[in-house]
Design a protein around this nucleic acid. Sequence first.
DNA 1: CATACATATGAACAAGTATTTATATGTTTG
DNA 2: CAAACATATAAATACTTGTTCATATGTATG
Lengths: 104, 104
Amino acid sequence: MSKAAIPSQLDTTILAETFRLLGDPTRLRILFFCLDEPRSVGDIATSLDLSQSLVSHHLRLLRGARLVRGNRQAKQIFYELADKHVSDMLVDMAHHVCEESGED
Amino acid sequence: MSKAAIPSQLDTTILAETFRLLGDPTRLRILFFCLDEPRSVGDIATSLDLSQSLVSHHLRLLRGARLVRGNRQAKQIFYELADKHVSDMLVDMAHHVCEESGED
DNA sequence: CATACATATGAACAAGTATTTATATGTTTG
DNA sequence: CAAACATATAAATACTTGTTCATATGTATG
């Protein structure tokens, strides 16, 4: 039990798919921007200085992977991280990377 | 302090770079294969059914990002994960993804 | 030192993907 | 229902990147 289980090749592919989606700066910025509170598409685009279309495209990918979830409120749609797993994942990784300098 | 800090745009880029490297099935398989014990390039190639050249190329990228580290032992070079941060990161993420089905 | 073994590198190619531009869908309000 | 607002989609383009094939570098051994 001490040794980590090596994922099957299929699991590895799924895991890689998730990593790949997180591996784009624009998408990551969108995710972090939606981390604390739901944000409308327009708000994301304006605040992050991205075109509305681009934001929409990325949100579609993130939605497809169940990384974010959108709620319509009148004309606007507010996106937030899909669940706690996703947000924990992001926060954990951010910590890992921040503490990565000057070790060993 | 309860809210997660939103990384700067620069940090986000670095974080994305790490995610991007983890976002390839072949690289992930290599990393998991080297998780428990150091493995020679030839061993990786044979066990994972990949060409020696391909393994070498990927190892170079992983080395560049300080995700793995290689130790020469006579003719062979044994690769292992760079440090505990990296291995923890992988194991954590694997858990996150495995438990991702059927929540909320 | 020449041969065999192990790994690394370089060029070339194929496939994927982030971004833009233009347009469509959906929702409210007068 | 028409106009205005907010988001989504489609097609096209430019760029990145995973893989292969060929070759080079490095290391031990006879």
